[in-house]
Design a protein around this nucleic acid. Structure first.
Lengths: 141, 141
DNA sequence: TCTAAACTTGACCAATTTAGTCAGGTATGT
DNA sequence: ACATACCTGACTAAATTGGTCAAGTTTAGA
C-alpha cells in the first residue's frame, strides 16, 4: 500500500496557493519555484483541480490561480478525488471460482477492505486546507 | 494510494489456515485450491510469514503450515509488515532545495502524512485474525 | 530404501503505474 | 504585438506488481 506523490503535490501546491492568493492570482511558475515541483507536472495537476472547481484561473500576464472556495471548505478528500488519488483496494476477481463476487459468498477479506477504506476516507473528510495552514503558519518556509 | 494483492492474499491464506490447522498442518496446495491463489506465489508469501514467526512449517508428506500463535495474537499489522506491505507515504526528497529534510523546515505535508500513517496503522493494530474468523464463521466457503 | 509430497530459494518477466518531460498550442494584460 | 501564463495531449523511463519457472532440499510413509 502506498501513497503517491501526485496527491501530496496537490496538497502542497494548494497550501502554497492559500497562503499567497489573498491579493493577486498566483502563477504556477511561482509555486513551482517555491515548492520544487516541475511546472509541467503542476499544470497537469491544476487542470484537474480546475475541472473539480477547487481553483479558478486567470489568463494573461499577471494571471494565475486562486482558490475557488475558502480553505475550511476544501477537504482533503476533495483534493485527492480531483487528482484521481483514490484509496483503491485491490478488487477481488469476479471471475475467480473461489473468489469474491460481491454477493453472498464474499471472500474473507472483503468486509475488511471496505472497513479500511471507510476508515481512511473519514480521515481525509475531516481534514481541510485550513487545518494544514494552521499547523504550518508559525513556520517560515 | 492503493492496497496491493500481496497483503490481501496473506490475510486470506492465514484465515484459511486458522480454520483448518486444528488437527494437521495445512499444505499450501490445499490453500491454493481453496483460495484460488497461485501456489508459487503462496510460497513466496509464506516464506516471509515464516521468517516473521507467524507460521511454522513441517516438511515431508503430510507436512504443511500451522499458525505459530493464537489467532487473537496475530494482528493484521504483523501480517502486513511480514509481507512488506507497508503503509509507505512517498518520502519527501532530502536533496530538494525547498523540500522537506525531516528537521526544522518540514514541508507542509510532512505532519499530515505522519498522522495518516498512524491512523491507518492503528486500524491494523486493532484487528486480529480472530476478528476476521468471527466475521466469517457463519458462512460456508 | 526409495520416492513422492511438500517446503525452500532465487532468478526471471510481462503488464501496469508513476512521475514526470516535451511540444505545441490559446488567451490576455500591458 | 508580444511576453506571460494557462491549456492539452502525446510520449517515456523507471519502478512496482503479480506472478512464473527452475532447481533444489527434506522427510513421511510404502
Amino acid at each position: 500500500m502506498k501513497l503517491t506523490s501526485k496527491g501530496r503535490y496537490a496538497v502542497m501546491a494548494l497550501v502554497d496557493l492559500a497562503r499567497f492568493d489573498t491579493i493577486n492570482p498566483v502563477s504556477l511558475r511561482d509555486i513551482s519555484l517555491r515548492q520544487g515541483i516541475s511546472l509541467d507536472y503542476l499544470e497537469q495537476i491544476f487542470s484537474k483541480l480546475k475541472k473539480n472547481q477547487i481553483v479558478k484561473s486567470t489568463r494573461g500576464t499577471q494571471g494565475g490561480y486562486v482558490l475557488s472556495k475558502k480553505p475550511n471548505e476544501i477537504k482533503l478528500t476533495n483534493i485527492f478525488n480531483a487528482v484521481d488519488e483514490k484509496v483503491k483496494t485491490v478488487q477481488c476477481k469476479k471471475e475467480s471460482k473461489k473468489g469474491c463476487n460481491g454477493k453472498a459468498t464474499k471472500c474473507v477479506t472483503h468486509n475488511l477492505w471496505d472497513e479500511l477504506e471507510t476508515h481512511i476516507n473519514t480521515f481525509f473528510e475531516k481534514k481541510s486546507l485550513e487545518d494544514l495552514l494552521k499547523n504550518n503558519s508559525e513556520r517560515v518556509n
